[in-house]
Design a protein around this nucleic acid. Sequence first.
DNA 1: TGCGGGCGTCAAGCGGGCGTCAAGATCGCT
DNA 2: AGCGATCTTGACGCCCGCTTGACGCCCGCA
Lengths: 224, 224
Amino acid sequence: MTRVLVVDDDTQLARALRINLRARQYDVDLAPDGATALTVAARFPPDLVILDLGLPDMDGVEVVHALRGWSSVPILVLSARGAQAEKVTALDAGADDYVTKPFGMDELLARIRSALRRSAPSDTDPVIRTEAFTIDLATKRLTTDEGEVRLTPTEWHLLEILVRNPNKLVSQRHLLQEVWGPAYETETNYLRVYIAQLRRKLEPDPSRPRHLLTEPGMGYRFEP
Amino acid sequence: MTRVLVVDDDTQLARALRINLRARQYDVDLAPDGATALTVAARFPPDLVILDLGLPDMDGVEVVHALRGWSSVPILVLSARGAQAEKVTALDAGADDYVTKPFGMDELLARIRSALRRSAPSDTDPVIRTEAFTIDLATKRLTTDEGEVRLTPTEWHLLEILVRNPNKLVSQRHLLQEVWGPAYETETNYLRVYIAQLRRKLEPDPSRPRHLLTEPGMGYRFEP
DNA sequence: TGCGGGCGTCAAGCGGGCGTCAAGATCGCT
DNA sequence: AGCGATCTTGACGCCCGCTTGACGCCCGCA
């Protein structure tokens, strides 16, 4: 998970940030002052730092300098002071962005996403592995022990839905609606044909499926 | 020298920016609207783009999208509108920073330095080699065993998108949108013609492509 | 034990996607 | 204005993937 270090002595704001970040699936560390921030950052290197300039023990710019000494982690500076000179020194010290309080939470989150996107361009590779085959959803590639396998568009569409809901039962209705459209909700024979094709292409023993399972009368399930 | 592309229809502001940037030893290109911006960016790839959202011909966010289709150049957005939603969409479209007018020149310059500092180290040499040909994206040169090959602008645009996503399936929709614009999303015959031309120019055996592969019904893929 | 519905399998047809070619239309340069 | 390069557009044939129907099997149920 993405780890964010929030450095702020304003417990009110820090808590608000933590709640919002947690809700977005970020892992959040808190540090109330510069010294702890540097210790925590060294011990648990974060993927992003949110740094309030107004710290009790040291100048925020000092913290930026110290971090930049050994890390290139994105640093997003918060400050109540909006003076230009302030911003210039912080940015030139190595900060990546500078947001003036009060700020909107949505904007801050967008800036966080932007900073993270830059630092980790090829970070999330949605690759699913089973003992029999490997699926790369980004590049649309599928490999088995026998080598690479080609899937038709419909086969991909179907497989993708199942794979994105691992271990979960997906109803026939849902599959049909997603792949063929709402008008085909009852054409279960399509599913039979295509599930069979998928099994033939990627199950070691197509007649005894281990990953693409049928739940009679209900739907299908992908088991990794 | 560092090349900055300024996209703004406000000639007053554009001129002010140019003067200030020139004074800091930046090379400055100007574009008054989105269309010229994209053309210029394709012809003379900048190291940074300063983009005013209020353009006469198209939405600024469209420009961000189009650029991100083939380039990872830092984009710094300017806007008179300070609404949060505005910022969020621009940043999520791929912009790196968002500055609200009126802004201080010193701050803008500091943000420019910050953006350039980040992109500087990750400046990978844009040369792609395969057994059959070599592509230099910076100088727009393409050589095969037979010697140097000339490509038309459209051919370049298409090839560039594919080459920047090696091994990845790029959908027909995406290619059409990036090269010909959103209105051509369904004109797949364009792709057929141009992919064929590219193959004829750089595949050893155009009828059996090894690097520009078709994924029937889905799109195309570049394999190094 | 006989019946019926849901599922898996197979194969035939046919429509659409793809590659190819070439003739206009358009653009840009001289 | 004229010319060449480039882009657009249309036509054609081939092949693949989607659709569709038939059939057999298994299981639950009467």
